[in-house]
Write a protein that binds this DNA or RNA. Sequence first.
DNA 1: TCTTCTATGATTAGAATTTTCATCAAGTAA
DNA 2: TTACTTGATGAAAATTCTAATCATAGAAGA
Lengths: 226, 226
Amino acid sequence: MKILIIEDEPELRKSMKQYLHQEGYVIESASDYSKALEKIEVYDYDCILVDINLPQGNGLDIIKHLKQNHSKAGIIIISAKNSSDDKILGLDLGADDYLAKPFNLAELNSRIKALIRRRNFDGNKLIEINEITIIPEERAVKVHNIPVNLTAKEYDLLLFFISNKNRVVSKNSIAEHLWGDDSDQIDSHDFIYVHLRNLRKKLAEKGCVDYVQTIYGIGYNFKISV
Amino acid sequence: MKILIIEDEPELRKSMKQYLHQEGYVIESASDYSKALEKIEVYDYDCILVDINLPQGNGLDIIKHLKQNHSKAGIIIISAKNSSDDKILGLDLGADDYLAKPFNLAELNSRIKALIRRRNFDGNKLIEINEITIIPEERAVKVHNIPVNLTAKEYDLLLFFISNKNRVVSKNSIAEHLWGDDSDQIDSHDFIYVHLRNLRKKLAEKGCVDYVQTIYGIGYNFKISV
DNA sequence: TCTTCTATGATTAGAATTTTCATCAAGTAA
DNA sequence: TTACTTGATGAAAATTCTAATCATAGAAGA
């Protein structure tokens, strides 16, 4: 899960980054709208947090821009307490949620989670990428519409790859996501090889292309163009 | 893990309770010191959060009281921004940490976690309860000084019982702790029976008393007087 | 108080999954 | 090339979970 934070206050930006990173998201940030637009042009984000009351420029334009370009990113507006007009305008433009400052980080996190859940489950009940179809509600996976029987770890691994598609993920970040906080205490992450192998095998059996590119010494890249 | 919150502001108290409960702690609260003292007399807490600047009474006395009675509870002082004197006095009296208002709940949570970790790992490297010895660093358990070979789930289960000793824990709360947030989506928690049985068996093999009392229809109680 | 019923807990065996281990293959740098 | 590191593979071991069966506590009713 990749998140873009657009926020000018350095303190707040930093603590948001830190907290959300720790929660397992991949975080990038921009301190103003022009930098944000640059990033949006280049990368895909799953969720964008926009502070809508920055001094230099209009955050609504970002939302407009995203919607015009049919971005799939979820948008959460962060607004100062007093200014509710822009907030409403933003929601009208298609933002998904808003959060008034000051907020606590756990609250932010649960909003993000809720948003991601909504996007994954309600909006489009299916995640479809070429021949792969994922039905998150059932934790089920199909290739060429043939069911593939994945174990929990294999499913988690696939979902992690897909939510980081076209991005290089390290073995460490895989371990963090699939085994949680204590994974750094573990010396060897060899079992990733095993689960990856089993995943590749099961997908290949149903005629799926091997999208998982091994990047020697670095990690893996689930390379796909939808 | 049982936590006592001593805080007079109803709003803050409520949100602390709610958040920490959601994080899996058992929470009790008191709105003033006399009520707090009553609770302290009756129950054992793992951690006590004391707002040290309440209007009626002196929070330092609570800390003194706890220390004089050799309470094992960790103490975190919550203090208003301005008053640092009492904070320092409190730390001198043996409080473990402090947190200035306003704080965010995630921060509070991480302080509590850190405190519990310190208590469990650094201070006394061993947890000793009658014939059971736990070496958390190694996730190792001994009974009558004989090593017991527990699996991860069995160890977690034992630790959960011990950190809630003399307290009734429901099957649901066990599931929440051992399997995390998604456990409520699971219909049956039958595997707890299995893990509990294996744990009991392994402990009994080494001559350990069965401290785990089954409370029909409710849960279990790890009953022990140290 | 004594059955009978029902819900909950215990037990066991076995299936499925996860992890470990040993070995082989391939990439990288000297 | 050679040495070294990283990744892949297969088989076996360990752990976790499922499912079927048995046992017991508590409730309901005679």
